[in-house]
Simulated assay, not measured.
Amino acid sequence: MPGIAVVETVLKPKYIQSPPAPDQFQHNYIADIYTKWYRHYFYFCAKYCVPHPDAMVPFFEAKFSRLEYTGRERFNMSYMRHTGEWVNIYSDLAIEECLVAITEDSLFEP
């Protein structure tokens, strides 16, 4: 799947962060970016590290972009809004067009 190559060559180098120094403010940071299929959706996900010593969980996942397979090798593209709602932005795109949008359109950033 070409999406995996985009994750490895573009998204990971751009968004994965180093842990903050121990004397700095302990904020959540992106530790990994990956993709996964679920039914007819292909998700781009970020794994956030929660470095605070009293955190309830050490990591959590946030899906930030979704490709919905519509058939004929075409996809609808959505981003996760701050309200937790998926918002469809593009419809009926080829995979190559989707990957360009993932790398260039700020709506699809983690």
Rank of each mutant, 00 (worst) to 15 (best):
M1V: 07
I4T: 11
I4C: 03
V6S: 05
V7S: 07
V7Q: 04
T9M: 06
V10A: 06
V10Q: 08
V10S: 02
K12M: 08
K14I: 06
K14N: 07
Y15C: 04
Q17S: 09
Q17G: 01
S18R: 15
P19T: 01
P22F: 03
D23V: 06
Q24V: 03
F25K: 15
F25S: 11
Y29Q: 04
T35K: 09
K36I: 07
K36R: 11
Y38T: 15
H40F: 06
H40S: 13
Y41F: 10
F42Q: 01
Y43Q: 15
F44Y: 11
C45G: 09
C45S: 07
A46I: 13
A46L: 11
Y48T: 01
P53A: 05
A55V: 04
M56F: 09
M56T: 11
P58I: 11
F59L: 05
F59T: 04
A62K: 14
K63N: 15
F64R: 01
L67G: 02
E68C: 10
E68T: 14
T70P: 01
G71A: 06
E73T: 10
F75T: 01
F75D: 01
N76D: 15
N76M: 14
Y79T: 03
R81W: 14
H82M: 13
H82Q: 07
W86C: 02
W86Y: 05
V87I: 14
N88A: 05
S91K: 15
L93V: 09
E97W: 00
V100M: 09
A101S: 08
L107I: 06
